[in-house]
Design a protein around this nucleic acid. Structure first.
Lengths: 267, 267
DNA sequence: CACGAAACGATCATATACAATCAGATGCGA
DNA sequence: TCGCATCTGATTGTATATGATCGTTTCGTG
């Protein structure tokens, strides 16, 4: 076996198992101990594996990278301070033991962070949100049945006979593509469908929309203002932009980004 | 077992249970008491766990925003070579474009690895399996609706009006707690329930059971032998143990563990 | 308070992993 | 085919890890 072959096999094994011992490689490669050590050292010098006593380890830490951090994580980073501030304000609306619904989206994803210590019944159609909730909180998590749509990372069923029909949430937290006098607007028909389903299973609709969303328009109206009970936005919103919502009887909460940072500092 | 393996296993356990005793680790790591103490002390010095009398404790309650890992159960690391060999054999039964069902479990989890290049319709009640499939393959993934049960990491609905009712799989892949002349046995009523639901949605039942399962008994029979079409086990199984299955008209596949390594070598 | 049991740290002999060295094997170019 | 360069495997001595033992400390119980 060539040196090259051994190297790529070692890398593959390390990738797969995240840790391999010299002993394992001894059998697998059929090479001598000395050679294997040399191989590992070479790979370690190149930074392709980490040398540890008795074998080699993956450079990437041993955590499961496959849960959060897909196409999702990219947009997750946009306007993070705003989203965090809004999420923090949203979390304050939640009382212990409540049952809530969280619609998928990057803004609502930020909410998860503030739900760690709660004891809630949560329904979400977002796979990443469910994954993070599962890992970082003790809440009870329910998923609707259906196919996972990769682009949006949401679970959606083409059928109506769904677990979702047996759930009732006190509050629905949702993001949006755009928010204006027509109501909640979305750009993706799939998301419209998912959101529409959730809207039927709750009373209070809480829209989390950073101020940029107030200037965003699209073709599809998910629901009108009359269905919305609360809007949470950030202090980038101009007072006149919020008038239309207040006039419609909606409670408008403006989350201060800097204040959020202050709290962050103290924590 | 390497020092590093022990360390990460300890960390994982501490993460999962938030406290572990030296005694627990004694069995699980197969190392001496002295070594385990040393390991814990080392980890404690690094601040990764908190040393307490009799064992180790999680350094902080929870909540690590970016380190989102699954609360994987420990059993995932048990008899890995057998499970891999069985999984490899199982994957060979699958043809492109097929629609299959994967029941949750650590043995079936191993199957995911071999499904990367397939183009399948997959229904699974296992959250980790869905997560890994989502990240490592292009298969279409469907989840049944329901609540996520943390211990077993499966999605299960108390209701029957479920997405699952709209799915039909050519094959069902399932593990088991025990497998003998009575059929598939399970120890957890929740798993019985989940498995029973899946059994209704397929024709071919393929049981993946490492040889230790053939000597395992339990109180609950999920289904009798007549429902099983194929059994895949490893070469640790004695021929006479397999007779009863063959007599029942079941196809029995024995996956060679070493052969698996051979294939590994060539890859 | 006294007692026994369990957990602990220190110590030591042994086992294992390691780097260095060198001779032989192998690959490669002339 | 030869000769050079490189790679490989065996050997050696050294460093480190491990497991058993033992005396000490801590904890719980009567």
């Amino acid at each position: 076996m060539l040196e090259r072959e051994r190297h790529s096999l070692i890398l593959k094994l390390v990738e797969e198992r995240s840790i391999v011992s010299v002993g394992d490689l001894l059998d697998l490669l059929g090479a001598s101990e000395a050679t294997i050590r040399r191989d590992i050292n070479t790979l370690a010098e190149r930074g392709e594996v980490k040398r540890i006593r008795g074998g080699a380890e993956a450079v990437r830490p041993r955590h499961q990278p496959h849960l959060v951090g897909m196409p999702f994580s990219l947009s997750q980073d946009i306007s993070v301070p705003q989203k965090r501030a809004i999420a923090r304000a949203a979390a304050e609306l939640i009382t212990a033991g409540e049952s809530i619904i969280i619609n998928g989206g990057t803004t609502t994803f930020a909410l998860v962070e503030f739900l760690a210590d709660h004891d809630l019944d949560i329904l979400t159609n977002s796979f990443p949100i469910a994954a993070k909730l599962l890992a970082t909180s003790r809440n009870r998590i329910t998923l609707p049945g259906g196919t996972i749509f990769r682009e949006q990372n949401i679970v959606l069923s083409p059928f109506d006979n769904d677990t979702i029909e047996n759930f009732w949430g006190n509050k629905l937290f949702t993001g949006c593509y755009g928010l204006n006098r027509f109501g909640i607007m979305e750009a993706d028909p799939l998301i419209v469908q998912a959101q529409t389903k959730l809207l039927k299973r709750t009373e209070d609709v809480i829209v989390m929309a950073d101020s940029s969303k107030l200037r965003q328009k699209s073709a599809m109206i998910v629901t009108g203002l009359e269905r919305i009970s609360t809007i949470i936005t950030d202090d980038g919103a101009k007072p006149e932009e919020l008038e239309v919502f207040k006039a419609a009887g909606i409670k408008v909460i403006v989350a201060s980004v800097n204040e959020d940072d202050e709290l962050q500092k103290l924590a």
